[in-house]
C-alpha cells in the first residue's frame, strides 16, 4: 500500500489537534500537557530538520539553541518576577513576562549564536562537523552549570507561566493552542522555504556540493543561512519548553537532548516536512507508556532505534509512502 505524503500530513495535524480537544471534553488535562510537550519537541526537531534533512548537516549540538531559548525565557522572567534589573552593558531592562517578546529574544540570540558556531564548524564537514557541534553543545552545558547567577546546576524556576495578550496561558488548552499555532506557522514557512530557490539550492548542495559550486552557488553561505534559521526555530521551541515546565536548567543543553532531537527526525523520516512531528508524537507516547511500565525504558528505545537504523530506512513516512527519503 502506498500512501500519499500530503494525506499523512493532514491526518497527523488533524490528529494532533483532535486529541487535546477530546481530552478537554473528557477533562483529562494531563493528556493536553503531554500533547503540548510533543508539539514543542516537534517544533525543535523541525528546526533541526532544516539543517539535517534539507541541508545534510548532521548537527549533534542543537540542544545549544534549545537551551538558549530556555535560558532567554528563564532570565527575562526571573528578573521580571524578582523585580531586579538585568544589566546588559549597553542598556538595562527589568525583564519581561510577555511571551512574544521572550520568543523574539530567544530567536535572535539563538540565531546569533548559530551564526558564530556555524562560521566555525562549517569550515569542516562529515565526522568533524558531528564532533564539533557536539563539543560546542558540551561547552554551553558546562558554562550553564558554572553560571551561579542563574542557579548553576539547579537552574531557575519561574512561578507563573508567562503571558500572551488576550489568553490565560495557565489553562492547559490555551497554552497548547499557542504552541500548536506556532508549530503550524513554522511548518508552513518551512514548506515555503523548501520550495523556494534557497531551499532548492540547499537541497542541491546536500546532494552534491561540487555540482552546486559549479553552477555558481555558494555552499558555505547556503549552509550557514540554513544553520542560522534552524537555530532560531529550535531556540523558539526551547523558550516554549521552558514555559511548559516553568523551569530551566543546564539539562536543556545536554548532549542526550541533541541526540534525542536527531532520533525524533529518524523515527518520522529524514527531510520530510511532517517527519519530526510524527517522531515527537511517537517518542512522547513511548516515553509515557514504556516509562510507566519500567524505569529502564531507554533500553527499549535503544533497541527500537537500532532496528530502525539497521532495517527500516526512511522512518515511518518512508514505510508508509514506500520512498526512502533524503540521504544524509
Amino acid at each position: 500500500m502506498r500512501v500519499d505524503e500530503r494525506m499523512i500530513n493532514t491526518v497527523v495535524i488533524a490528529g494532533l489537534l483532535a486529541l487535546p480537544l477530546y481530552a478537554l471534553a473528557v477533562d483529562e488535562p494531563f493528556t493536553i500537557t503531554l500533547v503540548t510537550r510533543a508539539v514543542i519537541l516537534a517544533l525543535a526537531a523541525v528546526g533541526l530538520n532544516i539543517v539535517l534533512g534539507i541541508g545534510g548537516m548532521v548537527s549533534f549540538g542543537h540542544a545549544v539553541f534549545f537551551g538558549i531559548g530556555g535560558y532567554a525565557m528563564g532570565i527575562l522572567a526571573y528578573h521580571a518576577q524578582t523585580f531586579t534589573v538585568l544589566d546588559l552593558g549597553l542598556f538595562t531592562t527589568g525583564g519581561t513576562k510577555m511571551m512574544p517578546v521572550i520568543w523574539l529574544v530567544a530567536m535572535v540570540v539563538s540565531a546569533v549564536v548559530a551564526l558564530l558556531i556555524g562560521v566555525l564548524s562549517l569550515r569542516t564537514s562529515g565526522v568533524y562537523f558531528i564532533m564539533i557541534t557536539l563539543a560546542f553543545g558540551q561547552m554551553f552545558f558546562y558554562f550553564a552549570i558554572s553560571w551561579a547567577q542563574y542557579g548553576g546546576e539547579d537552574g531557575v524556576s519561574i512561578y507563573v507561566r508567562n503571558s500572551f495578550p488576550g489568553l490565560n496561558t495557565l489553562v492547559p488548552i490555551q497554552f497548547f493552542g499557542v504552541c500548536f499555532v506556532l508549530l503550524c506557522v513554522v511548518l508552513f514557512l518551512v514548506a515555503q522555504l523548501q520550495a523556494s530557490p534557497f531551499g532548492l539550492a540547499l537541497n542541491g548542495t546536500r546532494q552534491s556540493e561540487a555540482r552546486a559550486q559549479a553552477v555558481g552557488l555558494n555552499p558555505m553561505r547556503l549552509k550557514l543561512l540554513a544553520f542560522v534559521i534552524s537555530g532560531a526555530v529550535t531556540g523558539l521551541a526551547g523558550a516554549l519548553f521552558a514555559d511548559l515546565n516553568r523551569f530551566v536548567s543546564p539539562s536543556m543543553f545536554s548532549w542526550q537532548l541533541s541526540g534525542e532531537l536527531i532520533v525524533l527526525i529518524i523515527i518520522g523520516g529524514v527531510g520530510r516536512l511532517i517527519g519530526p512531528v510524527i517522531g515527537a508524537s511517537v517518542f512522547v507516547t513511548l516515553e509515557h507508556f514504556l516509562g510507566g511500565l519500567t524505569d529502564f525504558w531507554h533500553v527499549y528505545l535503544g533497541v527500537i532505534l537500532l532496528c530502525i537504523v539497521l532495517f527500516g530506512r526512511g522512518g515511518i513516512i518512508g514505510l508508509l509512502t514506500g520512498q526512502e527519503g533524503a540521504h544524509v
Partner: peptide, 12 residues
C-alpha cells in the same frame, strides 16, 4: 552514512 552510525551507536 555517518548519520546512521551516529544513531546506531547512540542506541548502543
Amino acid at each position: 552514512a555517518h548519520l546512521d552510525q551516529v544513531l546506531a551507536t547512540f542506541a548502543l
